[in-house]
């Protein structure tokens, strides 16, 4: 069952079309990653799902119905820019948000989540006393305090240190295991690759990718070679059949032309340097993102 469905949804802001004729289906129990450059329409899409913005055209179904107001009680939402009452105490903030969502066993839930995110000592402190990272964790707890069936997170990992990012990642996977459907937008392609069952990319208001990572990578085929040589990027100079080289220092990634033969290229490189590693692979999500979002900004085009 699709827990969220968008049918031909369009949203304009004046003359700007922020979301253009968008179709999307989010199956129940999955983790769906929203990716896209800044200003591509991710937040607008999320806000429309949350009924904060109204689409100019199209239909949005939540739990299979257009009557979303009541259903929104089962959706937790973490906006891109965090907003908490600074003068409220941590416990009161969580109780307030839990009550608004008609959450059950709030006292136990608050204790559980504060302990999980190492905020127990801050229970009676005011929000203004928290660091930015702590406030972000608190905002996340407020989002899930009522154990919603759907969790929508706009850039949940931004601003978190690696330890807290890891805690958040584990928590999201736990919530998914307990039956929640999770949507999150991110610029961290690595996190999206590792966590998401489905990835949706929006660019200039239009859907450009939608599917599992495997499906998306299959669309692009095995046109990428990951190579490590003793000469480094110098071994790749003046090679034919290469569309792009991305130099990561120790390792280089080569995108091949459609007619290029990987074995011919390997032979050419071996004439110049010892090859320590040679891997024919599919493009990473990061690479796919850049191919779509910035085709004009080729970092190192040797084609």
């Amino acid at each position: 069952m699709d827990i969220i469905e968008l049918r031909q949804v369009t949203k304009n802001f004046g003359s700007l079309t922020a979301v253009d004729d968008l179709d999307l289906k989010v199956p129940m129990g999955t983790i769906y990653g929203f990716i896209g450059p800044n200003g591509s329409g991710k937040t607008t899409t999320i806000r429309m799902i949350m009924n904060i913005l109204y689409p100019d055209q199209g239909t949005i179904l939540l739990f299979g119905t257009r009557q979303r107001n009541q259903r929104l009680d089962h959706v937790g939402y973490l906006p891109e820019e965090r907003g908490l009452y600074k003068k409220m105490k941590v416990y009161d903030v969580l109780k307030f948000h839990g009550e608004l969502k008609n959450g059950k066993n709030l006292k136990q839930e608050i204790t559980y989540w504060l302990r999980k995110f190492d905020l127990t000592a801050w229970t009676d402190k005011k929000v203004e006393a928290l660091s930015k990272g702590m406030a972000q964790k608190l905002q996340f707890i407020a989002t899930v305090i009522d154990r919603p069936q759907v969790i929508i997170l706009d850039e949940p990992f931004s601003g978190l240190d690696p330890v807290n990012s890891e805690i958040l990642r584990e928590t999201l996977l736990e919530l998914q295991k307990s039956g929640a459907t999770i949507i999150f937008s991110t610029h961290d392609m690595n996190m999206a690759e590792k966590m998401c069952d489905y990835i949706f990319m929006i660019h200039k208001g239009k859907k450009v990718l939608d599917g599992t990572l495997n499906d998306i990578q299959n669309q692009y085929g095995s046109d990428t070679i990951r190579i490590q040589t003793e000469l480094g990027a110098g071994a790749l100079e003046e090679l034919k059949g290469i569309e792009k080289i991305s130099d990561f220092g120790q390792v280089q990634e080569i995108r091949l032309n459609t007619q290029a033969d990987s074995q011919t290229i390997l032979a050419e490189i071996m004439k110049k340097s010892r090859v320590l590693r040679f891997e024919i692979t599919r493009p990473s999500l990061h690479d796919i993102f850049i191919r779509i979002a910035a085709p004009e900004r080729k970092e190192d085009n040797h084609a």
């Binding site: 806000r47 949350m50 907003g83 608004l100 905002q139």
Partner: peptide, 16 residues
């Protein structure tokens, strides 16, 4: 202030 501090957006996910 609630608008500028984005508190409103958080609340609007729960209330109309």
């Amino acid at each position: 202030e609630e608008k500028m501090e984005r508190i409103a957006e958080v609340l609007l996910a729960s209330v109309t």
